[in-house]
Design a protein around this nucleic acid. Structure first.
Lengths: 122, 122
DNA sequence: GCGTATTGACTACAAGTGTAGTTTATGACT
DNA sequence: AGTCATAAACTACACTTGTAGTCAATACGC
């Protein structure tokens, strides 16, 4: 479960996190808007995800049903941590500071985050 | 300038962002603590970075001096944006919310971020 | 001046990634 | 029953990435 999920694979995971289990064809259809992939490509990605043990497939008649084996939150946490570690020395404050500066946080964003922080305080 | 910087390449960039210009040997020495790379490996990475036009090299006698062509802030901004886009639908607040939950922000972290946000308000 | 170390240039090579095509079995329709 | 569509399995192939090795030129120490 420690293998990295590539970019293309991640797009497939997002579909499965939204709804599962799905057949390969259904996943492919769900991706049509965003990526211009052939069904074969999607199947390859699904097979690789199964190989990485982050997706399970169970036979359903002649086809497979795919479902995620890792929860999205865990993935998001892992990737966020990676970024914070690599670019901000593991500290969250500099990240927020950076986003605040470069991203033009709207007043509403700021209000939201403040409310969130307030709720966290003892 | 749009080529992605790989993980290993990023380690080299960090060295150059800290101090530049440097020779390949100096970069290699600076990396000794963190990565167990041969000089040749570092040279390969430098060459690739030059190929990607994110590092420049200028001859200095028989060797080259390497210096970054992109500023760290731009890279950090780009990577942060990528993560926010991919995992949080482009919105910063959910990222902060997520980090707040999973990262056990200390009281001090919270205080820092609050101060930072206060400073941003009109 | 000659050997040795250093440097850049070029080459290597396996694993991972993006992106399919081909083959074979099976089920669905007429 | 024969034909067409579909699904899985296998194969392909170029590009990137991690990690060097080799070669040829040059400079430095003695």
């Amino acid at each position: 479960m420690a293998d990295r999920i590539s970019d293309a694979e991640h797009a497939v995971m997002e579909v499965l996190w939204r709804r599962a289990p799905l057949t390969a064809t259904e996943v492919s259809e769900a991706l049509e808007e965003d990526r211009d992939w052939s069904l074969q490509t999607v199947k390859t990605l699904l097979a690789r995800l199964v190989g990485k043990k982050v997706v399970a497939h169970e036979a359903d008649g002649r086809r497979y049903l795919y479902r995620p084996l890792v929860v999205r939150d865990a993935y998001v946490a892992h990737e966020s941590q990676r970024l914070v570690d690599r670019l901000f020395g593991g500290r969250v404050t500099p990240l927020v500071a950076h986003l605040a500066e470069t991203q033009q946080l709207s007043d509403q964003d700021i209000a939201e985050i403040e409310a969130l922080l307030k709720a966290l305080k003892p």
